[in-house]
Write a protein that binds this DNA or RNA. Structure first.
Length: 815
DNA sequence: AAATCGACGATT
DNA sequence: ATCGTCGATTTA
């Protein structure tokens, strides 16, 4: 056993063979990190994935420099998971490794280290190497691994660094150190000490000359005695009485009152607003029993529960059961969002045994969570898809909430994989169970649930038997013909909104298109502005008064005259959310109309501020893109309007209808959560469109039947497996030729009916790269494995052509 | 992925 | 003759 296969953090095929030095033979194990030289001077942190005795024939392997861990950092299950991902999604192990590990666990020679600020170093307890490194860092701000090699022996480097990181003397210098700062809220409380030492009358006497201060002091005291558990918000004092900040400040200075800050996200639980877990309703209990049955049969579950049916309650029950059995839970969310009741409730109950893992953590925080998971200190982990890669010790349950969400498979991050499917494989490896939960399951999951590959559990009623919102289709063509319209709104829509305003209810308006107008077009010559990097017209944003490319972020000034024919007549075409917002503000000048989209939420705390406005009922009408369908659970919303619903359907994508249905249903779920008086107005030119008609009927099985029929007819998932091959290059002729060649190679091995293309991608140029694609529709089942082997063979053949090596190739399996 | 090497064209 | 850019090649 003299050789090891090492995974390197590079996007390279396969693993690399290294020789294990004799003194490491005892120590080395699969799953440990090792330091290896690669390409002359460079040093990388690799992962041992195999130890064997076969000496390579064609080359002389290099030696492992050092072993970084005393015990494997990566459990066996994770290595199996990585291998599955790599085979299934046709990606390299190195890519997975890069994605899975926090960067300070995979130091390489270009990683820069720096001294932590404001640390006092205890030189007495440092060894020689540590001392050298600290001294070097005192002279210069940063240093990298190659530079350290000059004064510390190679074998000692990592030991020295990790011990100094542990001591918190040094840290990794992350160039893009975007620190996520949590919002803090100020609270006040009476200084108990002051009350102990002196009698209350004495204190009041002292404040006699400042009556306002006295009044304020008494107000705080009164609030505190009334409810000692509930901390007092600084802002509520100013709301209730006519006090000034100066008065509070002097009370603080007199040491009678303490002021303190609490982080925003811990607030909810701290305020004790959470009800204890109520008993499950009969419907929920039935669902839970069905889940138990499925689990005992070793089946995973699709929990299809209409909006506010209390899926969370069922999750909580199952989570508690799993933890009681001594196993751990992973709770996946599409993105880390504010205020999730489940978070608050779990936090209260499990405190330090609850962990979070998501993209907004700093590297140090990630390593911290990693360590805790490995030591089995955390029982429950809430996280986004990258949490799948934590070194779990005994996973018992994975919950995938909002399983239909496309954030589980973002196309732009490599490696490409679908967290929903990966979660099921990971669970299988760990012998754990999975609950996929959604109010609007993906068509694929629904199909597998009906095919009994998953157990289908349906919760058809809202919690407390609250009625589901009612849908009404507004025929915009008719309104237009009878001239009953103002801009993009029919008078019917306007009247309904006015009624809500009169009743002091809130209204949501969904329009899923950013900006003010799609295009700015010259009336006389038809000129439109294209992005200079992409083959895309630029969207006009009136609010920031510029043109933006939504694909690469490129900005340009809005032209005043046509750059081509100098005409001054420039038209806008296509309606964006800004325009809807403007129209509504004009129609209801006295209402408070707010807009929520990525552009208006970019500023720090913009989301939090708007959230509070909505919560306090200050916002009357909220106009927004799909953003408004997530996380806004307020009791006072009863009307949801979708003025241009057709635009949701007209997207070049076989999932467009499915996504329209999901989006409409998700926003609708915001309406009438408590009262049951929710109403949804869908304004459309096609009131007889099958999707709208079926949404209206409130029978989800009908709509899924419709989707499945269409998918079957036009051969789309779940009836076939899709693999998209995308080729990119700066030069169009090159990528075009490459794609033609790819097509011909594929046709050599695979039947004609499986191959679509090659053709120019829907967006022909993106970020200066031309894109071409080939779409494969492969049959499911046994044939699939066979075809996939042939695909790999074709890809290998393609790779042999040296001329096409510079063409970037991406594969999207289960696209 | 990333560094290195070689070819070719533009610049001193 | 030298610098810069692009593409091909190689990594254990």
């Amino acid at each position: 056993m003299n050789f090891a296969q090492i995974i390197l953090p590079l996007n390279l095929k396969g693993t690399f063979t290294y020789k294990v030095p004799v003194d490491f033979l005892e120590k080395i194990e699969i799953g440990m990190r090792v330091l290896v030289p690669f390409r002359g001077k460079k040093i990388y942190t690799g992962i041992v994935c195999e130890i064997h005795d076969t000496e390579p024939e064609s080359f002389v392997p290099k030696e492992i420099i050092s072993i970084l861990d005393d015990a494997p950092i990566l459990p066996n299950e994770q290595i199996r998971f990585w291998n599955w991902l790599s085979e299934y999604y046709l990606c390299n192990l190195g890519e997975i490794y890069r994605f899975a590990f926090p960067s300070s666990l995979k130091l390489e020679s270009e990683t820069y280290l720096k001294l932590k600020t404001n640390v006092t170093i205890d030189f007495e307890n440092l060894d020689v190497n540590e001392m050298y490194l600290i001294q070097a860092l005192e002279v210069r701000q940063t240093i990298n691994l190659t530079e350290i090699e000059a004064f510390i022996p190679k074998k000692e480097i990592m030991k020295t660094i990790s011990s100094l990181i542990d001591l918190q003397y040094i840290e990794i210098d992350e160039k893009i150190a975007e620190k996520y700062k949590q919002k803090e809220v100020a609270f006040v409380k009476i200084n108990e000490e002051a009350l102990k030492n002196r009698a209350l009358p004495e204190i009041l006497l002292e404040l006699k000359r400042s009556p306002k201060q006295q009044e304020l002091f008494l107000l705080i005291l009164e609030k505190q005695t009334e409810n000692p558990e509930k901390p007092i918000r600084k802002s509520e004092l100013f709301d209730e009485g006519n006090f000034s900040h100066a008065q509070l400040k002097s009370l603080v200075e007199k040491n009678l009152v303490h002021e303190f800050l609490i982080q925003k996200d811990r607030l909810e639980s701290f305020e004790g607003e959470i009800e204890e877990i109520e008993k499950l309703t009969d419907a929920q209990l039935k669902a839970k029993n069905e889940i138990d049955d499925a689990f005992s049969e070793g089946k995973n579950v699709l929990l299809h529960g209409v909006t506010s049916s209390g899926k969370t309650h069922i999750y909580l029950e199952k989570i508690e059961e799993t933890v009681t059995e001594g196993k751990n839970v992973l709770f996946l969310l599409p993105e880390i969002s504010l205020t999730k009741q489940i978070v608050q409730r779990l936090e209260k109950k499990y405190g330090k045994q609850l962990g979070f893992y998501h993209q907004k953590l700093t590297d140090f925080e990630r390593v911290e969570v990693w360590r805790k998971v490995r030591n089995n200190e955390l029982k429950i982990l809430i996280g986004t898809r990258n949490a799948l890669f934590l070194p779990f010790q005994n996973l018992g349950l994975i919950v995938v909430d909002e399983e239909h969400d496309s954030m589980y498979r973002p196309r732009e991050v490599s490696p490409y994989f679908n967290a929903k499917d990966a979660a099921q494989v990971l669970a299988q490896i760990y012998g754990a169970n999975v609950i996929l939960g959604s109010a609007t399951p993906s068509v694929e999951s629904y199909y597998f649930a009906k095919k009994e590959k998953l157990k289908y559990v349906f919760l058809g009623e809202r919690f407390g038997n609250v009625k589901l919102p009612e849908y009404e289709l507004v025929n915009f063509k008719e309104s237009q013909d009878s001239k009953n319209i103002v801009g993009n709104f029919s008078t019917q829509l306007i009247e309904e909104i006015r009624k809500e305003l009169d009743r002091k209810k809130q209204t949501m308006i969904l329009h899923n298109r950013r900006g003010y107008a799609n295009v700015v077009e010259c009336e006389s010559c038809g000129y439109v502005n294209y992005c200079s990097n992409c083959d895309v017209v630029m969207t006009y944003h009136k609010f920031s008064n510029e043109l933006k490319c939504h694909y690469c972020g490129q900005k340009a000034a809005k032209p005043k005259i046509c750059p081509k024919c100098h005409s001054e007549k420039l038209n806008t075409r296509g309606v964006g959310v800004e325009q809807i917002h403007e129209e509504i503000s004009k129609i209801f000048p006295d209402a408070e109309v707010d807009r929520m989209d990525v552009d208006s939420m970019r500023r720090k705390f913009a989301y939090e501020k708007l959230y509070e406005k909505l919560e306090e009922g200050e916002t009357d009408i909220l106009v927004g893109t799909q953003m408004i369908s997530k996380g806004l659970d307020f009791d006072n919303i009863e009307l949801v309007a979708i003025p241009k619903a057709d635009s949701l359907l007209y997207v070049q994508d076989f999932r467009a209808e499915e996504r329209a249905y999901q989006l409409i249903t998700q926003v609708s779920g915001r309406a009438g959560r408590i009262s049951g008086e929710g109403k949804v107005l869908i304004q459309t030119y096609n009131p007889y469109h099958p999707v709208f008609e079926r949404i209206k009927e409130h029978d989800s099985s009908k709509i899924y039947e419709h989707f499945l029929e269409e998918r079957k007819k036009f051969l789309y998932p779940p009836f076939v497996k899709l693999i998209l091959i995308e080729l990119k290059h700066r030069r169009e002729d090159k990528v075009n030729r490459a794609s033609q060649f790819m097509g011909s190679v594929l046709r050599k091995y695979l039947p004609e009916e499986c191959i679509l293309g090659p053709e120019k991608s829907p967006i022909g140029k993106l970020n200066l790269l031309y894109q071409y694609q080939v779409l494969l529709k492969l049959p499911r089942g046994k044939k699939y494995a066979e075809f996939k082997k042939l695909l790999i063979k074709s890809l290998e053949e393609f790779n042999e052509i040296t001329g096409y090596q510079s063409v970037k190739k991406s594969l999207f399996v289960d696209f």
